[in-house]
């Protein structure tokens, strides 16, 4: 009562995701018809996420913890809008920038410069908007001398640097970090951590996936724990990290 209600940055409402696991992946017509005729077309159902609900407030930095195969990536994909949940729905307020596998949107035959505009457009930004930030992006990536070279001639570190520079230059409202804080060499890593810290300070909402509880404690102010597609803990980063660490140790 009387409390001002702020619109949450991310709402995950009763989300479930069902996968059909078939022993062999059928990706051509020939096999499909053979299987159909011999009536061997059956699927095993698997719920990757079950009734997951949580909200993230603007400016909150949420760590997502869980073992391999627990559904972390599936959860991030539904938040990013890449994967549509089988049940429930996800709402994101504002521009979302996924920092998952940087440089996935590059065209290898395109030069660095051209890729900046292509990548920007992939995130929904106009040429004009990117042009305004173009110099910053190039300066931050330290690729000025290579900007007119096709990206296929870049090293993987250079590609990641360019991707990072674009994704962070556009001032997103929600940032998804999937263990990408280790970009490039030590010098660039320091710079990128600083950049992310400054984005944190400006109040960006963050979803951060990691196995490293130290990093989660350092970067996040709250966390959730996912086990076999179910959220089993939600609280401050310290509380949830303690639960996770206890599980890691008990499994030893």
């Amino acid at each position: 009562m009387g409390e001002e209600t702020v619109k949450p940055a991310v709402v995950v409402d009763d989300v479930s995701v069902l996968f059909n696991l078939n022993a062999e992946k059928i990706d051509n017509l020939k096999e499909y018809f053979i299987k159909l005729l011999t009536r061997r077309l059956h699927y095993t159902e698997f719920w990757a996420l079950k009734n997951v609900s949580f909200t993230v407030q603007p400016g909150e930095r949420l760590g997502v913890l869980g073992f391999n195969g627990s559904g972390k990536s599936t959860l991030l994909k539904t938040v990013a809008g890449v994967l549509k949940p089988t049940k429930g729905h996800v709402e994101v307020d504002g521009v979302i920038a996924p920092l998952l596998e940087l440089g996935a949107g590059f065209d290898m035959n395109y030069t660095g410069k051209e890729n900046i505009f292509l990548y920007g457009a992939t995130m929904g930004f106009s040429r004009k908007y990117i042009t305004e930030r173009y110099d910053d992006i190039v300066a931050f990536s330290e690729l000025k001398d290579f900007i007119d070279v096709p990206v296929k001639n870049y090293s993987s570190g250079m590609r990641a640097r360019l991707g990072f520079s674009i994704a962070t230059a556009v001032e997103p409202d929600v940032l998804i970090l999937d263990e990408v804080l280790s970009v490039g060499d030590a010098k660039f890593r320091k710079k990128s951590e600083k950049k992310i810290q400054s984005m944190f300070d400006s109040g960006v909402t963050v979803l951060f996936v990691s196995h490293n509880t130290d990093q989660v404690r350092r970067l996040c102010n709250s966390a959730i724990l996912i086990e076999k597609g179910v959220v089993t803990a939600r609280g401050t980063a310290d509380e949830v990290c303690a639960i996770y660490d206890a599980q890691v140790n008990s499994n030893k």
């Binding site: 065209d107 035959n109 051209e114 505009f117 292509l118 920007g120 457009a121 992939t122 929904g124």
Partner: peptide, 21 residues
């Protein structure tokens, strides 16, 4: 409408790359 920039970029890219080199 929101993704008109991407649409334009892809069209531009295809035409440019087809005859590059």
């Amino acid at each position: 409408y929101n993704y008109r920039y991407l649409f334009a970029e892809i069209v531009r890219k295809n035409i440019k790359l087809q005859y590059r080199n």
